[in-house]
């Protein structure tokens, strides 16, 4: 189950925050195909946002083929994102690398800058998918 945290001052539209957090949960394997997303009622009761905002986010996720709405049952994950799930070695390798970087005296910003630079090199001209078109 995913729990949405809405940051009112982030400057990112509320429905986009829900889309991004769902994708993040899919990437990290916290949500897997077949899992049910919280109902609009559950989300708005916890966050006090407008129900239509949740529905708009779910429609966007559906449009991207990530989830599907089943009438009367709820919204379910259709496919995952990325391969960095729990049984993949990748998260562990990154963890080891970050621990090494820290030992070498790099602080959080140094690590982030290094990581971003490598990301840029490998994914040239590919922008983050955070903002749905």
């Amino acid at each position: 189950m995913v729990e949405y945290r809405i940051d009112r001052h982030s400057g990112v539209a509320t429905y986009v925050q829900i889309v991004q957090q769902t994708k993040q949960a899919l990437r990290l394997g916290h949500l897997e195909p077949g899992d049910k997303l919280p109902t609009a009622r559950e989300v708005v009761e916890a966050t006090a946002i407008n129900p239509n905002t949740v529905l708009k986010a779910y429609r966007e996720l559906e449009r991207e083929g990530l989830v599907e709405a089943r009438r009367g049952l709820g919204t379910f994950v259709k496919r995952g994102l990325g391969t960095a799930t729990a049984d993949s070695p990748l998260p562990g390798e990154l963890d080891t690398w970050v621990a090494k970087a820290r030992e070498a005296g790099l602080d959080r910003d140094d690590v982030a800058a290094l990581f971003t630079a490598v990301l840029e090199k490998h994914f040239l001209n590919q922008h983050s998918q955070g903002e749905p078109s």
């Binding site: 009622r41 708005v44 009761e45 916890a46 006090a48 946002i49 407008n50 129900p51 949740v54």
Partner: peptide, 14 residues
């Protein structure tokens, strides 16, 4: 305020 606004939104959703 946050809790009761949540209650109101749940009412609207349901």
């Amino acid at each position: 305020r946050h809790e009761l606004m949540g209650v109101l939104m749940a009412q609207a959703a349901e």
